[in-house]
């Protein structure tokens, strides 16, 4: 039998429908948070730091802000998307359907990534109201936007399978991803750090995402664009490998 596109589409539309129902918390709330970041970081700190690497501070933080929302929302959407049917028991239907792991992931991860990308674009538009925006490499920007959304939605999907309680859904986004994003050069160039801390920061994978994304906007980066792309793809590869193992073993899905 060929690919079950009806199934992947059904899951995708089901998840997008959930987004529509929860529009306020899905879209409006991250946009309000981003506006607050602009007010606090852009206006308060920006009045003291006028430029970073030749870019106005307000414009400099835009890629980092988008990345912050993209990472947290991708994880949160995808993890909830798969965890909720596990929690309610409706997962039985997906497990008993003639659907492959790839189609399941296309549905759940695709919907979460789509939502994150829409959010990223909305934040970008919102940012344009606060600072003059220029995107030097729009194709690369789109590539990073999509790759990051897909990679972290897949990561969120894995968290949703791993979690055995609602609190665990929050642990990784709150205790790992958000700190790593704040410490990953979202609001500053890592060149502004003392050498020791700069070297430590290079172990933070989010640095490569923010740096690559920022390069696509302003043509300036903390690390090379090739390395950023390679790190993003490597993360995606690791997530895919773990997902393959999960579906092969039925970990937390099948008894």
């Amino acid at each position: 039998m060929t690919m079950n596109t009806h199934a992947a589409r059904a899951i995708y539309l089901f998840e997008m429908g959930r987004t529509r129902r929860t529009l306020l918390q899905s879209i409006v709330s991250p946009v309000i948070s981003t506006c607050l970041y602009f007010v606090v970081f852009g206006s308060a700190i920006g009045s003291r730091i006028t430029e970073v690497d030749g870019v106005s501070y307000g414009a400099f933080i835009v890629p980092g802000l988008i990345m912050l929302s993209l990472l947290t929302q991708s994880i949160s959407n995808a993890s909830f998307g798969i965890y909720f049917p596990r929690f309610t028991g409706t997962i039985y239907e997906v497990l008993s359907a003639p659907i492959s792991p790839i189609e399941i992931m296309l549905g759940y991860v695709g919907a979460a990534a789509t939502k994150s990308i829409i959010l990223g674009v909305i934040i970008l538009i919102t940012a344009a109201f606060f600072v003059p925006l220029r995107i030097e490499h729009p194709v690369v920007m789109l590539l990073f936007l999509v790759l990051t959304a897909v990679s972290f939605s897949l990561f969120g999907f894995l968290i949703g399978i791993w979690a055995d309680g609602f609190e665990k859904l929050q642990v990784i986004p709150l205790l790992i991803i958000t700190p790593l994003t704040f410490l990953g050069g979202s609001f500053y160039s890592i060149d502004m750090l003392p050498p020791f801390w700069r070297n430590v920061t290079l172990f933070n994978p989010v640095v490569y995402l923010v740096s690559g994304f920022r390069w696509s906007f302003h043509g300036v980066a903390d690390v090379g664009i090739g390395l950023s792309l390679a790190m993003t793809l490597a993360f995606l590869g690791v997530c895919l490998a773990v997902a393959t193992w999960i579906f092969k073993t039925g970990y937390r899905l099948k008894t």
Partner: peptide, 21 residues
Amino acid sequence: TTDSFETVWTTVSFSRGLFGK
């Protein structure tokens, strides 16, 4: 085990799609 916040029509149509129809 049902999707509490879906409508009857949506959830039944979802099942049909899920099974490749």
